[in-house]
């Protein structure tokens, strides 16, 4: 008995060391293509723009001092990202609820697959289609026939919002769907039998169960939207300006790499704070979940 267990321990120890080596390729990749580039970016952010554009080594905080000129893109990014995440949530929740609890059998899988199908078409092609739809010959013309007068939709903050909600909706629907799927339908019946109204049921049973899904949906939408570049360019006509656009301009038009690097560094730092916040909240949620299940 003791021999066997000792042998098992030894082989376990060996396996631990060998299997741990499996992390090496991934770790090397992280160092080579994530840490190193971010370090280079940080170094560049204390440099100066060379006269012909690009980077000149220096040690100055001038780039950071200049960041105040990019307040508008910052407030646009934060405001619109938050707003559109909320819209996404409001649009997605009833859909996820219906798919999870109202649809039965094999239809369920088909409908969930249908949520993803549009996203197998190239993002750019879909967005070009929206440009056609929102342009003067699309929806505004139909609205004109109905009698709304001349309405501009394309190249407005509305179009940017629509593009964002459209493109990130599945990322909100799917996690909420997954968490609601686990909900036992008998809970709902029990709640109704106990005389709870629909709103009480929603608040006391559905929402708490959906919370982890809602939280991951929010993160899955909020974070990439904050880094959005193409949607403001294509649907906002270059007028609704995000941090990503300011960044692209600094590298591609102004060729002011150090300033761009400073903006990017602050950007990454900000995102890290958001992620840390998410991790803290989700850990707490997990703990609460565990405690409530213990009860």
């Amino acid at each position: 008995m003791s021999i066997i267990s000792r042998a098992a321990t030894r082989s376990n120890g060996q396996r631990r060391s060998y299997a741990a080596l499996l992390v090496v390729p991934a770790a090397a990749w992280y160092v080579g293509f994530l840490v190193a580039p971010l370090v280079v970016l940080a170094i560049m952010s204390v440099g100066e723009r060379s006269p012909n554009g690009g980077y000149l080594p220096a040690l100055t905080l001038a780039q950071y001092a200049n960041l105040t000129t990019r307040i508008t893109p910052l407030t646009n990014t934060l405001g619109l990202a938050a707003l559109n995440t909320v819209i996404c949530l409001l649009v997605a929740f009833p859909v996820a609820y219906t798919l999870a609890l109202k649809v039965r059998g094999s239809w369920k899988l088909v409908l969930v697959a249908l949520v993803i199908v549009p996203f197998w078409t190239s993002f750019l092609i879909r967005t070009y289609a929206w440009m056609t739809l929102l342009g003067a010959n699309g929806v505004p013309r139909i609205l004109g026939w109905i009698g709304f007068g001349e309405i501009q939709l394309l190249n407005t903050p509305f179009a940017v919002s629509l593009g964002i909600v459209y493109n990130y909706l599945p990322l909100m629907i799917l996690p909420i769907y997954v968490s609601l799927e686990r909900l036992d339908r008998s809970f709902l019946e029990a709640s109704r039998d106990l005389g709870a109204g629909p709103i009480t049921t929603l608040r006391q049973i559905v929402l708490p169960l959906a919370a982890p899904g809602i939280l991951s949906g929010i993160v899955l939408v909020l974070i990439p939207v904050m880094g959005e570049y193409l949607i403001p360019v294509l649907l906002g006509g270059g007028k609704t300006y995000f941090l990503g656009n300011a960044l692209a301009d600094l590298f591609l038009q102004s060729r002011n790499w150090p300033f761009g690097a400073a903006l990017a560094t602050v950007f990454v730092a900000g995102m890290t704070v958001v992620v840390a916040g998410y991790l803290a909240i989700s850990r707490r949620l997990v703990r609460i979940g565990r405690e409530s299940s213990l009860l």
Partner: peptide, 17 residues
């Protein structure tokens, strides 16, 4: 083309509200 000040002026216009 290379003027940092002019490039920055243009970038500020685009970044304005």
């Amino acid at each position: 083309y290379n003027s940092a000040a002019r490039a920055e002026a243009w970038a500020r216009i685009k970044a304005s509200a």
